[in-house]
Structure formats: structure tokens, C-alpha cells
Design a protein around this nucleic acid. Structure first.
Lengths: 139, 139
DNA sequence: TGATAAATAGGAATCGATACGATTTATTCT
DNA sequence: AGAATAAATCGTATCGATTCCTATTTATCA
């Protein structure tokens, strides 16, 4: 997803444009990795020194609901990245547990779904491979 | 894993026996579902009314390290259950997001591993299917 | 431009989890 | 069995992430 696409989604859904929203999206778009709310706070401080926790958390939450950001939970912390799947391109990631960098995996293991009894109503799934990338091992 | 097997592991590794430890293990063994530290606290209060957070968290942490308990992170909270995989029987779960109840899945999708570039050193993975069980939907 | 509904700042509150010193207890050695 | 000792526990303080609250500011649209 591009920054422009994300802003378009916000507009379509009746959310107001703000420079802070665009900047949060730009920060996420700038890297193929998961960032914590704290990471985003720090990066955005250069441009908006006084922005509050609330603004970052509230916007991130909105973006996740709109499908602009993908969320995962790693080591007790919410981590976020610009959505890299669009309809029909659902996939999963290998994630570096040090820097959050990701690689995409070709398949989704939910083909296993036929093994789930009908009595269970499936609402979601999570498949992630964790490890350390080359850079984080050598530094 | 049975309560006896768990206690045996503790003994082998040089940990002391305490009634509280046994009770934590018994509580987890009594149900095929994930419990939060808070859940365990509440259940154990009947038998040991004054036990502290520290004791529960420290013991849970020890049990996870010893492979007696399995941990997952759900909605920002650590959840625990008695290990149901032994060596050579690695598998995954369908988890009810309301009550924590689980069903075992037959396969592990890590056969996908060949798709991970060598530069990534894999350390772990997570595959979970989420949903609601029959009981939690009708209540 | 003015109205108004949404967004933000700033700080307080919450919540899960952890840390620490003092005390108690299970185990070991005699 | 009784004493020594190392681990386990208690009670509380603390921490970090996230959410909540209210007054103020701002984007949007007529």
C-alpha cells in the first residue's frame, strides 16, 4: 500500500486530513518492518515535537481498523507496519525479533482449516516465523 | 503431560517442592485451555488465599522455561496451559478467544521453511487459529 | 467567514508484568 | 531429629505500554 492509497482510504471513510496522520503513515511506509508505537513517536518528534501518546495510539488504532496498518504483538508490545497485503494477496511474514524487519512468505497455512471442527467458528489466525536477520546478528 | 510428570521435571532440575507449585500445575492440568496469570491467581486463592503476584508469575515463568507450561500471548496478556506436546509431537492449536479452550491441529506449517532465505536465522514460529467455541457463542 | 464535528495536547489513570528487601520454608548435612 | 543454607514466598514498590479525560485547536463544508 502506498501513502496516497492510505490517505485515500481515510478520505473515503470520512476521516479528516491532518499532517500528523500523513506523517505517521509516511514513517511506516518508509520501512519494510514492524515499528512500535514508541518507535513511531520518536521518529515523528522531529517534525511534531509536542505530539501526545494519545494521538499516536488513537491514530494507529484507527489505521489498523481501516486496514492501513497491520498489527502484531511481539514481546508484550504492539508492533505495526503498512499493510502489504491487498485483497487476494493474503500472506505471512518472517520477522526479525531484533529490528522488526520482515520477509514475505508465499503461502498461507490455512489450507489446514478443514481440520477445524464445525463447532468452532473461525475468526482469524496468526502465522509468523521469528528469527534474526543478517544485520542484527553481525552487529 | 501429567501433574506427576511435571513434578518429576521440577525435582530432576533441582527445584524444591512446594504445595503452591503443585497447585498451580494442578489448576493448569484441570483444563484444556489457556489461562492468564490472573485466572490462576483467582483459582489458587481458594487454597492459598494470601499468595502473591510474584510467586505466581515467577513460578509460571519457571514452568515455561522447563517446558511444563506452554505460553502464548493473546490480547496483550500472557496465557498459559499445561504442555500438550512432548518431543516428536509438535503441533498447534485452535483457540477460543473468549474462554481460551483449545483444540489440537494435526499439522505444523513449518514445512514452508524452505521458503525462508538462509540469511534469516530462524528461532521460532507461531501458528494459531482463533475463533469462538460453541459454548461461548450460545451463552 | 462561521458553524460544527473531529482531532489533539497534556496529564492522570489503568493494567499487566516485574523487581526488591525481608521473612519463611524445603532440603541437606550432621 | 536439629541446625545450616539456599530457595521460595510475601508485600509492596515500580515499570512500561496503553487508555481515558477534558479543555483547546483545527479541518471541513455550507
Amino acid at each position: 500500500m502506498t501513502v496516497e492509497e492510505a490517505l485515500q482510504i481515510l478520505k473515503e471513510r470520512g476521516f479528516k486530513y491532518t499532517g500528523k496522520r500523513e506523517e505517521i503513515i509516511r514513517i511506516c511506509a518508509a520501512e519494510k518492518r514492524y515499528l512500535s508505537a514508541r518507535d513511531i513517536m520518536e521518529k515523528i518528534k522531529e517534525m511534531y515535537p509536542n505530539l501526545s501518546f494519545d494521538t499516536v495510539y488513537r491514530n494507529i488504532s484507527t489505521f489498523v481498523q481501516l486496514g492501513i496498518l497491520e498489527e502484531t504483538e511481539l514481546e508484550g508490545e504492539g508492533k505495526f507496519r503498512l499493510a502489504c497485503s491487498v485483497d487476494g494477496d493474503h500472506h505471512h511474514h518472517v520477522i526479525c525479533t531484533v529490528c522488526g524487519k520482515t520477509l514475505s512468505l508465499p503461502d498461507c497455512p490455512m489450507s489446514i482449516l478443514h481440520a477445524v471442527p464445525d463447532e468452532f467458528q473461525v475468526t482469524g489466525h496468526k502465522f509468523e516465523i521469528y528469527g534474526t536477520c543478517k544485520e542484527c546478528r553481525t552487529h
